[in-house]
């Protein structure tokens, strides 16, 4: 077993090369953020109209201000944790280059993880941190009733990183399905649709009927988006936050074992069928 430091030395270049190649197309990066902001703007206006149409100032404990913060942080979180590892695996399976990756003296999972990490770092530096800093400034200067505490921000980044790991493991398992079907595009679209809705990216989980909330407790989706966002907004106390983080870790352990199991099955298939 190599030391962690040595591992990072081996694999960090993969992260770096992802950042470098993404930054060659800076305009694309900016445009994709703009596109996301537009979608967020639609949600903002929709919520504004919803609160205007309601007789109450708070819905399920969320004021309009809360909700605006919710959708913005949600947007940031989804950009942070999203990666296209599933597509990448599918593409490599299709082109047959996955075999090349298997004979190299590196661990394929670790390599993919560091590549996804590269994207995370890029989003963090060029998008998430500046945007959150800007948000804190706005909130402080407008002196709203709510303040984002620094400890919440810290816990948020921890939780967002755990979300990133969860989605990474989900994506790995999904990418491996490419061994069995060619329309990975359709499958990832289903996955995208389900995770987006059930992770609370569109609407806080608390708006869901109770029975749905109960079911969701046994699924990893809320750990993807709802947990970090709620931690960030300070909607839950420290004790609850810690238990959410522990739950995320639990999911990581479970999904890690699951993804390894799927991986071993897929590899067996690969070696039998010859790609």
């Amino acid at each position: 077993m190599l030391s962690l430091k040595r591992q990072c030395e081996i694999y960090f270049p993969f992260s770096k090369s992802v950042i470098q190649s993404n930054m060659t197309y800076k305009l694309n990066f900016v445009m994709s953020i703009c596109g996301g902001l537009l979608k967020t703007a639609v949600m903002y206006y929709l919520w504004r109209a919803i609160y205007n149409s309601s007789s109450q100032t708070a819905l399920n404990g969320f004021t309009l201000n809360d909700m605006v913060m919710y959708i913005i942080i949600s947007f940031i979180t989804s950009r942070l944790i999203t990666n296209s590892i599933d597509f990448q695996i599918a593409e490599e399976v299709k082109q047959g280059s996955i075999a090349m990756n298997l004979i190299k003296p590196i661990d394929y999972h670790t390599k993919l993880f560091f590549e996804a990490l590269g994207k995370l770092i890029q989003e963090l530096i060029f998008f998430a941190i500046p945007t959150i800093a800007f948000l804190i400034m706005i909130v402080h200067t407008t002196a709203g009733n709510q303040q984002i505490s620094l400890s919440n921000i810290f816990l948020y980044f921890v939780s967002a990183f755990l979300s990133f790991c969860i989605l990474f493991l989900i994506n790995i398992s999904f990418g491996l399905i490419a061994f069995y079907t060619i329309n990975i595009w359709g499958l990832t679209y289903i996955k995208f649709a389900i995770t987006r809705f059930l992770s609370g990216e569109l609407i806080p989980i608390i708006f869901f009927p109770l029975w749905v909330q109960t079911i969701l407790k046994f699924m990893p989706f809320t750990s993807l988006n709802y947990s970090p966002v709620m931690i960030c907004l300070g909607k839950i106390d420290l004790k609850q936050s810690i238990s959410l983080l522990l739950l995320q870790i639990g999911w990581i352990v479970f999904l890690f074992i699951l993804s390894r199991w799927i991986w071993n099955k897929a590899i067996k298939r690969l070696t039998i069928l010859g790609g």
């Binding site: 329309n183 359709g186 679209y189 987006r196 708006f207």
Partner: peptide
């Protein structure tokens, strides 16, 4: 099968939008 998968994918996306509206109209 692949066609069916794609169809379901795009269908679910649209349906999640409707589910969203449904949840909102429970409040207003």
């Amino acid at each position: 099968i692949d066609f069916l998968i794609g169809l379901i994918g795009f269908g679910i996306i649209q349906l999640s939008g409707i589910a969203f509206l449904y949840l909102i109209f429970a409040e207003i």
